[in-house]
Structure formats: C-alpha cells, structure tokens
Design a protein around this nucleic acid. Structure first.
Lengths: 213, 213
DNA sequence: CTCGGGATACTACTTTCGGGGGATAGGGAA
DNA sequence: TTCCCTATCCCCCGAAAGTAGTATCCCGAG
C-alpha cells in the first residue's frame, strides 16, 4: 500500500516538481495538489491523504492556519511543513498547529521521500538545527516547572511575602504592617537571599508554587 | 582542528569501541574516557573536550546529573546522551539538564561521527522518533497555555507574559524574543490594560491562577 | 553572660518599571 | 479604500524596586 500524499504549495513550479517526484516514486502516490490553503481545505477532505506537504507561506490563509483546520477535521493526518528558510517563530507555530515535520525546499528528492515515509511511520523529520531549537525550548519551559527548594522563612518574612504576592508595593506593605518601608526592604533582601531570587516576581512565583504544592 | 571528544560510559566494551572509533577517525580526537560520572567530573575539567558522549545510565550518579554539573562549569559544552533504548522521561530530563543530542547505542559508526560533528556545529542530532516526542511536548505545552487566555491576550502578549512569569526582566525578555525593550514595554502596557492590573507582580499572579484553573 | 538571629530602621546609590506621549508597517474587517 | 488591531520601535520622566553598608533592640541558646 503506497503512501498517499497531497501537496499544498503556491509556486506552480515547486508544486509540479514535487508532484512529479512523488508520483514517480514507488510506494508514494500523489492524491492532490493545491495552490493555496482555501483550495486545500476544500479538496483534501474529498480524498484524505496520509501525508501532506504544506508550504508555510501561502497567499491569504497561511499554511499554519490551514494545518490547524485540517488537524481538527482529521487528527491522524501527518503534515510536513515546507519552506524556503528557517523561521523560528513559524516552526513553533507549526508544531502547535499540529505539524510533525519541517523541510527546507532545497532538500534533495531522496530526503523528501525519506521524510514522508518517516513521518508516516510516526517520526518527525527535521534538520538537527531545528531540533536544537526545540530542545532549547523544552529546556527553557521545564526550568519554570522545576521544583523550588523551600527555605525556612521567618513568620514575619512569610507575612511580607504574602502581601508581596498580592501585588502590594513596599509602601503599602509598610503601612499595612505598621513598619517603615526601609524595614520592608531589609526583609525583602533577606527573603530574596533565602529563596535565591533577585526580584519580587521570582519570589512570588516560588511562593505560589510552593503554596500550591 | 579536530573535535575533542570525551566518553563517559560504564560498559568497558562500549567505551573502548567508541574510543577506538573516535580516535581512528580524521577530524576527531578522544581526549578522555571515564567509566562513571564521578570520574568524569574529576577528569573532564582538566582537558575540556568539545563534545561529550554521555551514557544515561551510570552507576551511582546518573549521566543526567553529571550533565547538569558539567554544564554549570562550562555551558558551551556540547553533550550527546547515549543509551540502549528510548526512555521518554529521561530524554526530557537530559534536555533540561543541558544535553543537546540523543543517540541509541546501536547507531552505526558513521552516524555517530556525524552526530558529533553535528552537535559541534550547533545542531541537535536525534532520531526523528525522538524529535516527534519533542514536537508533541511543545504542542501540548502550548495547548495548555492557550485556553488560559480568556482575557483576549494576543499570542505575542501571552508569550511575553509567560516570560514575565519566569521572573525575566524587560531586557531579558527582549533578548529572548529578539525584539527591543521598547516593544516589550508596549506589550506589557497593553497586557496590564487588558488584565486591569498595574504591576508585573499582579499580572503574574493572575496569569498563574488562570493557568492553574 | 555573650553570641546570634530576627525585627526594626536609616542613608545613599543604581537600575528597573510603569505611565505618558508618538510612530510605522502589515493584515484583516468594514 | 479606510479603519482598526497587532507588533514593532523611540523618547521622557518620576516612582518603585533593588543593592550595600550599618546600627539598635530583644530574646533565647550556649
């Protein structure tokens, strides 16, 4: 059973050469070519392909949005984004929309076919350069969720941190506790040190995380 | 200039065959082999390699923890995790710890060398299977964060708010998104307006609350 | 008793924020 | 086309936050 592929690409030349590549290769079958997202949304549901090669930059509706809509209709669709150059933002947007792979247009024919069967097998073909971006993103996001080590705050410090977490300013905290702003500063300085943070925002985030735990 | 590689691997056979492969290939030089994390932490700082092949499962201290410690000492270190089979959790932990690539032990020699030079060039060599896991993770994370924006924040604003919630300063947000501080300030003003708050702390608290919901 | 930690307070200084203006380019809606 | 929204960028300015060093008072542990 050959893999059914559809192509969404506004450049006629690229579209036809891709179609020729796929149509002329064993194990692949081109079941549709579309010059824009609108045509794709209208035509693809008529004969669902296994894999779609989707240009990112399409006139009017972008390829990314098109992916979103198609994925809603058929989540099992495997989609490879195709573009001329690497755009970090669009990579992420594509991933979020539901695309699985990412190809540069000048990719050699053999690799394009390899990517198609790869994504069909459940992989995510992409250059290692793009993969690096993903790795960095994951590492960054996970940093936030990292468990915060809790530290022994004195009752007074805890009290002040609570007020801080309500968005109070130094002045307001001072008034509310009937102490001077300077004292608030001193406490905050100690709190920051204990929590290993450098700003009220970080302190509040840690505080709320711990509270929720 | 050849790429200096160190190997951390408890199996003597695997370690030596990797060392032989690297030592016997043009453009690569093996500058150290270690049977465990402790030895690696002691020996690697003596002659910093460019790339480290790190076994994930080591006796006592895990390869992941070893990566963390080494990365602190030298963030520029490029590390490829090596393991016998794919373990999702460990992949993510490794990424968070600071590893860039991920190899299965039975990878052909040529691909191992390719992966080393790849990571040295700034890529993240990994199988497309693993890449898929990353893609799913990214998509999932973004999905969770999306419904939280009942407050009509634009995607960009949401992104900035996320970074703000990590305790980033304007300057850091600007750098991380490759935009100017002024733009960040403008976005923040709009965000404050939409959320009806007047400070980062309040905005972050609202954000975290809504996220948890 | 002395020592240390917590709570209080002050001076002085630097950096970051938040609020006020505008401005431009591109995309989509009216 | 015009109008609005989004995203981008810039300037000014005062207020708030953060850094550093110091100092008093009280209380409990050693």
């Amino acid at each position: 059973m050959s893999i059914k592929v559809a192509i969404v690409e506004d450049s006629t030349r690229v579209r036809e050469s891709l179609a020729a590549l796929i149509g002329g290769s064993d194990g692949f079958r081109c079941v549709g070519t579309f010059p824009n997202a609108e045509a794709a949304l209208a035509g693809i549901p008529k004969e669902w392909p296994d894999v779609i090669l989707m240009d990112i930059n399409l006139p009017k509706m972008s390829g990314i949005e098109c992916v979103s809509k198609l994925k809603v209709l058929r989540p099992a669709l495997q989609i490879i984004m195709v573009t001329v150059y690497i755009e970090n933002e669009k990579i992420f947007q594509s991933m979020v929309a539901g695309a699985s792979g990412y190809l540069i247009k000048q990719t050699p024919p053999a690799e394009i076919l390899e990517a198609i069967s790869d994504v069909h097998r459940g992989g995510s073909p992409m250059s290692s350069h793009i993969a690096r971006k993903l790795v960095q993103y994951v590492a960054q996001v996970a940093q936030v969720a990292r468990p915060a080590e809790k530290m022994e705050l004195s009752p007074r410090e805890h009290e002040i941190l609570c007020l801080l977490a309500k968005g109070y300013q130094y002045k307001e905290i001072a008034e509310s506790l009937t102490i001077s702003v300077e004292t608030v500063r001193t406490h905050l300085r100690n709190i920051y040190e204990k929590l290993h943070v450098r700003s009220r925002t970080e302190a509040v985030v840690k505080f709320l995380e711990q509270k929720g735990t």
